[in-house]
Design a protein around this nucleic acid. Structure first.
Lengths: 268, 268
DNA sequence: TTTATTGTATCGTAATGCGTTATAAATATA
DNA sequence: TATATTTATAACGCATTACGATACAATAAA
């Protein structure tokens, strides 16, 4: 119908539409009705009906028998668990992150490269019941590479070509006044990160969040992720923050790298 | 093409096919090539090409640029993490399970109802390097309800109609000599479980695995999951196993129920 | 090099999935 | 309870979409 010039003759519309519907339901905290789905996807009601019928039939979606609303189906949950399970990184990293978080009493996160995106794959939340400003990110969130310590800690150690690919696919959106939104400035920043071995971000992604991150390597020495400490900016000055945590982030990230099989002094 | 009398005119073939392909790739430990996928799915090579092209295009699949093999894409990973994140049960249960496992030095698992399936949603593995028989189940695994302590601990506390629905959808496969494969015998077993408050399974699912499980309830009092202790059967006699662990399973499962908001003595 | 294997593009066809419309059920309003 | 409104299901006719087959290109093996 619509002039989808994105593609040629290889694109199967109904699959893409169906997957989008599936994703909508799975990501939604609440259950969704047929008509809600139709509105959110702007597809005809008939289309949604067929797609959901199919997805339900193969177990990826499920329907509350009372309310007739859709929710994530058993097969989808099984699949999700299998995927997460296959990510050995989180399994390896989690205990180290937990230990660090316990020690310093702050939020610790882990962002990993998946394709050209950086995804928050694990987070240790410190449950201080009602803090003024709470850091509240969920696993699965896609993280802007240029505006986070996680992102910069990864980018700094990737080959030029990968960095360009990632940035061109993700863009350099100006998220706050402090966001480094120019390619040139970012390049300089990455040089600094490389030199120091860790990255920082002061209110660059969202206002009020200060973070410091260090890269994590796999057994072949490639940087595949970064671990971060996140705190509310008002809690401490930049200087104190960096001096207090720089060694701890790097040390913990290095431990994770080691546990992933990376031998620090193998060469160079 | 094939006489798919399963359905009428509402079933959209290409969506179902595409999702199956997607699931195959995501569940596979290794990356899959186009032709491998074609064989495994028995679809024409052209079909697989279109489906994977689409899935890749929308980020659910990803292709290794060198080998051209498919793997789980960033958007799929993001989705999986979001799904798992939304499952508050595991978040709540995990620390209790960890504590129990630490205390007794055995494997502890958690199986939850998802639709008419019971899925292993979390497991604490005790990493005894090279034990003779290692319990090795992965999260995401679908668990036979009638042949496991997890399953029986759940079934015993569900309304009759749900039990029937589950059993008729899952069957009563004879998995070992000890499997309770008759509906009558199972009913008697479930009576016993209800009476004692926990379920056992001695080599009923796979040979060599003995388990004991207790139900977990949510805030509305419904049984939604069960927690199990799993050990290699040769390690201990049935009697000793039950007497050693019966109180611990129930107690820990109760703690989880309480943390889920269940008030034990609300009524009755 | 040749040969096998695997991935990509093309093409004509009809079956598949499309949006619309009609019916039924459920929920809200009076 | 009756009426209006929203929501879900089913039917249908048409054009597009996805189909399998085949031919071509690229890569890997020998």
């Amino acid at each position: 119908m619509k002039p989808k010039e994105v593609n040629q003759r290889q694109f199967v519309q109904s699959l893409a539409r169906g997957c989008n519907v599936l994703a909508k339901v799975c990501k939604s905290e609440t259950q969704l009705s047929l008509s809600e789905l139709a509105k959110k996807s702007d597809l005809s009601i008939g289309a949604i009906q067929r797609l959901t019928y199919t997805l339900e039939n193969i177990g990826l979606l499920e329907r509350d028998p009372r309310t007739k609303r859709f929710r994530t189906g058993p097969r989808m949950i099984s699949l999700a668990l299998a995927i997460v399970h296959n990510m050995e990184l989180t399994k390896v990293a989690h205990p180290f992150m937990q230990a660090l978080s316990d020690e310093i009493g702050e939020v610790v996160g882990l962002g990993a490269m998946e394709g050209d995106s950086i995804i928050l794959v694990d987070i240790i939340n410190t449950q201080q019941p009602k803090q003024l400003l709470n850091i509240n990110r969920n696993t699965g969130a896609i993280i802007p590479p240029h505006a986070t310590s996680t992102g910069k800690a990864i980018l700094a150690f990737l080959p030029e070509s990968r960095v360009e690919a990632i940035l061109s696919s993700q863009g350099l959106a100006k998220l706050t006044d402090n966001t480094i939104a120019s390619a040139k400035a970012l390049k300089r920043e990455l040089d600094l990160v490389r030199e120091r071995g860790f990255a920082t971000a002061f209110d660059e992604n969202v206002y009020g969040m200060t973070t410091i991150g260090a890269p994590v390597r796999d057994s072949s020495g490639d940087v595949i992720a970064a671990m971060t400490i996140m705190i509310p900016s008002m809690k401490i000055s930049k200087k104190k923050f960096v001096s207090a945590f720089r060694k701890k982030v790097v040390k913990t990230a290095d431990k994770i790298s080691a546990a992933m099989g990376y031998l620090k002094d193998a060469d160079k």
